[in-house]
Structures are given as structure tokens and as C-alpha cells.
Amino acid sequence: MDDQLKWVKSSYSDSEGGNCTEIAHDDAIHIRDSESAPFGPGFPVSPASWSAFIAAVQPGA
């Protein structure tokens, strides 16, 4: 399924091809290391889990 997802690099990724995270979504949120792209696996999390993670890492959380 990962090959059918539209992956987007994190806005915190550098422009020189350094370490970065990519995400994609369908009925789940998929996360992968861009160094493993395009063949490396992504791991899925539920939208609720992703929202909880984002809320926890927001400044002031």
C-alpha cells in the first residue's frame, strides 16, 4: 500500500537532503524516514493517535 500513498516531507526538513520525515494519509496516518524512500516501509497510526501526538509536542503542551 505504501507505493500508492502520496508522501509529503516535513516542513522541518532541510533543503539539502538531510534527515527528514515524510507523512501520508488515507484511513491512517503513515510515517517514514525519507532515507528509506521510496521502498522503505512506513508505519501507520490512527488519526486519533496522531492528533494526540501533535497536541503533546506543541509548544506549551
Rank of each mutant, 00 (worst) to 15 (best):
D14K: 04
A56H: 09
E35H: 15
M1Q: 10
D33T: 08
K9M: 03
A52N: 09
A52M: 02
I29T: 07
P59G: 02
A61Q: 01
Y12D: 01
A55Q: 09
E22C: 05
P44W: 01
M1C: 03
F39P: 00
A52P: 06
S10N: 01
P47A: 10
W50M: 04
G42T: 07
S51A: 14
A48R: 12
P41F: 00
S11E: 10
H25I: 11
D14E: 06
D2R: 07
G40V: 06
Q58H: 10
P41Q: 12
T21Q: 00
A52C: 09
G17F: 03
G18P: 15
V57G: 02
S51K: 15
T21C: 13
I31W: 05
W50L: 06
S46C: 03
Q4T: 15
D2C: 09
Q4V: 13
Y12N: 00
H25T: 15
D14Q: 05
S13I: 08
S13H: 08
W7A: 07
A52R: 05
A48V: 08
S13N: 00
A48S: 12
C20R: 05
I23H: 06
S46K: 05
R32Y: 05
G42Q: 02
D2S: 07
Q58D: 07
S51N: 15
A24T: 11
F39C: 01
V45C: 09
Q4R: 14
G17A: 09
Q4K: 14
G18C: 10
G40Y: 00
P47L: 06
D27T: 12
G18D: 14
A48W: 05
V45D: 02
A61L: 06
Q58E: 14
D26P: 03
D26C: 00
A48T: 10
H30L: 13
A52K: 10
D26H: 08
P44E: 05
D14T: 07
A55R: 04
S36F: 14
A56P: 00
A24S: 15
P59T: 11
E35M: 15
D14V: 09
E16N: 12
C20Q: 10
G17P: 11
A52H: 04
W50C: 00
Q4L: 13
F43H: 10
P38I: 04
A24Q: 14
D33V: 07
A52F: 01
V45Q: 08
P59S: 14
T21S: 01
S15H: 11
S10Y: 05
I23D: 02
G18K: 15
S46V: 07
K9H: 07
P59I: 04
V8P: 01
C20A: 12
D33A: 06
S49D: 11
T21W: 01
P59F: 02
A28L: 02
S36C: 14
S11H: 03
Q4M: 15
I29K: 09
R32K: 13
M1Y: 08
F53K: 06
F39K: 14
A48D: 13
S10Q: 00
F53Y: 13
S34I: 01
V57M: 04
V8N: 02
D3Y: 07
W7T: 06
F53L: 13
I54L: 15
F39S: 12
V57Q: 00
E22I: 04
K6G: 09
